[in-house]
C-alpha cells in the first residue's frame, strides 16, 4: 500500500507549491486527472525519486521511501516516450531492467524472449528503439516494467499518441499486472484509459 502524506513540492522561481495526499492499495489503479501543468508528472517524479520534496512523506507498506534513491524504491515508471536507451538494442534494454549489469541467468533470458514473443515482437531483440514504431517501443517499455516485478507502476501518459490496436494490447498487459496485485498510478488525458484501467479517480 502506497501512502503519500502532505507531500509538498515547488519548482524554483515564482511558482505555486503543490501538496499531495493520496493512497493506493495493492492491485488497485488510481487515475490522476488534471490539466497539463497541474502537477501530474511532478507527483509521479516525486514518487519515483527523480524530484526531491520539500516536505511530507511517501510510505510503502508503512516504511518511508522518500529518503531512498530512485534505484532503491519499489517502483517502475513508464512515460509517454523516451522510456528506452536509444543506443542499446531491445533485448539489452529489457535485460538491464532485470540486472543493472546485464548479468542474466538463462531463465531470465528465456523470460525476455517469451515476453517478446507474447507481445508480437519476436525477433526484434537485436533492433534498436530507433528502428521500432512508437507502439512497439511502448510495448518494449512495458515488458521491461513488468519483468522487473516491482509492486508499484507509475504510468505517465503511456498510451498517448498510440494507435487503437496497440492501446488495446497495452490495456490487456496492464490489466493482467493489476490482477497480479500490482498497484498503479495512472496520469492520463484520455478518459478511455481511465475507464478501462482505473478503479478510482483523483482530481488535481
Amino acid at each position: 500500500m502506497l501512502d503519500v502524506r502532505q507531500l509538498q513540492f515547488r519548482y524554483s522561481g515564482p511558482t505555486p507549491a503543490w501538496e499531495f495526499n493520496l493512497s493506493v492499495t495493492a492491485g488497485e489503479c488510481l487515475a490522476i486527472r488534471g490539466a497539463s501543468g497541474s502537477g501530474k508528472s511532478t507527483l509521479l517524479g516525486l514518487i519515483a525519486g527523480f524530484l526531491q520534496p520539500q516536505r511530507g512523506e511517501i510510505l510503502w507498506q508503512g516504511h518511508p521511501i522518500h529518503t531512498l534513491k530512485p534505484w532503491q524504491r519499489p517502483v517502475t515508471s513508464v512515460f509517454q516516450e523516451h522510456n528506452l536507451f536509444e543506443h542499446l538494442d531491445v533485448f539489452t534494454n529489457i535485460g538491464l531492467g532485470l540486472h543493472p549489469g546485464l548479468q542474466l541467468s538463462d531463465l531470465q533470458k528465456q523470460a525476455i524472449d517469451q515476453a517478446l514473443t507474447r507481445t508480437g515482437l519476436s525477433g526484434f531483440g537485436r533492433r534498436r528503439p530507433g528502428e521500432l514504431s512508437g507502439g512497439q517501443r511502448q510495448r518494449v517499455a512495458l515488458i521491461r516494467a513488468i519483468l522487473r516485478r516491482q509492486p508499484l507502476l507509475l504510468l505517465d501518459e503511456p498510451m498517448t499518441g498510440l494507435d487503437p490496436d496497440t492501446r488495446t494490447e497495452l490495456h490487456r498487459m496492464l490489466l493482467e499486472e493489476k490482477a497480479h496485485g500490482v498497484a498503479m498510478l495512472l496520469a492520463s488525458h484520455d478518459p478511455e484509459d481511465s475507464k478501462i484501467l482505473a478503479d478510482r479517480h483523483w482530481n488535481l
Partner: peptide, 24 residues
Amino acid sequence: STLQQADQLGILGWYRWRWLYWPR
C-alpha cells in the same frame, strides 16, 4: 530521460560506464 531510467534501474558505477557511456 536516459539518466532517470538508469537511476531507476540501478545502473550505477561500473555498469553505468559499461552500458550508458561506453557505447557512446
